[in-house]
Amino acid sequence: MKKFMGFILWVLVTLILIVPVSAQASDQVGTDLVYRLKWKFNTSVAGDIYADSNGYFKQKGLKVEVKAGGVGINAIRELELGRAQFGVASADQVIQALEKGADIIVIAQLFQANPLQWIYRSDQPRIKTLQDLKGKRIGVTFGGNDDAIMKTILAKGQLTKTDVKIISVQGNALPFFKKDADLWPVYRNSQGVSYQDKLAREGEGVRFFNPQDFGVSFVANSVITTGKLYKKQPGLVNSFLSALLRAWEDAMTPEHENAVLNAVKQLDGGINDDIRKKQLAATKTLIKPDPDIKIGQIDMGGWEMTESILIKEGLIKKPVKIADRLIQIK
């Protein structure tokens, strides 16, 4: 027992000595930066990939490593741990982190329209009003964004859970393909395009149910950094963001399309060129739905609605004054 207690003491003392050193080291931010994405490399992050591959960061004197995200990887945590200086997170992640005391700010909103939509077959009546959802079998990822969005939609349409049949989404879209579900949540610009293509080959058409068309705005991916970094090195944050947004602006133009598709293909070769092209076109409509909209523009109203949805669904307990953490850099 004495030996055991000695071992525990040794572990604790070692931690006390080691951990602050790494904390101090993470305070030093030079021009070598890490930009952690939310998900794996695909057409959804075409602008981020293009910024890296075409030297936009280098032109600003920055050496940025763009790292893919994935299951279990969370940019906010990476930022707090000092492993990344910039990242991409969804609005719900940002708001939930702020409620728990994270020091993060949003410096750009990449998606002006949330790519999370529901796909349904075109042989079904078009959903024109929320009442049209009555009797539908709807796929929802319990605990996910789509769960909160769908609950808000149903409440807005004065529908209860008994008016629809909720089907749990678990990793694959089999229930939708087997016609056990009428509406299935997809990322419009990635899965949406692939599923549309797959069903087209079977002679079936599809439509998309977009919550935004029914007044439910839930903000998707945004660029984040720490409040501390912005306060200490605003110039660095500005340089990073201007390089990134310029790359995104260029990536969404027809002149750069082939170069962008090639850059994406280098990192995401798992799909065919035609699908990738369609995915890029779909991404454009979400990133820059209107030529007058500047990429990165923060939709304050959308963020406030997202916050109120999260409160209503019990995902956060109190408001986080989200407007104070949205920094629209000119």
């Binding site: 604790l12 904390a23 728990k100």
Partner: peptide
């Protein structure tokens, strides 16, 4: 308990928020 104390030490040392490692009250 050792595992949680370990996490709390990291939390305190790095000044991490409850989002990364939850505190006692959370």
């Amino acid at each position: 308990v050792i595992g949680v104390i370990f996490l709390w030490m990291i939390k305190l040392s790095l000044g991490l928020s409850d989002y990364v490692i939850p505190g006692i009250s959370l």
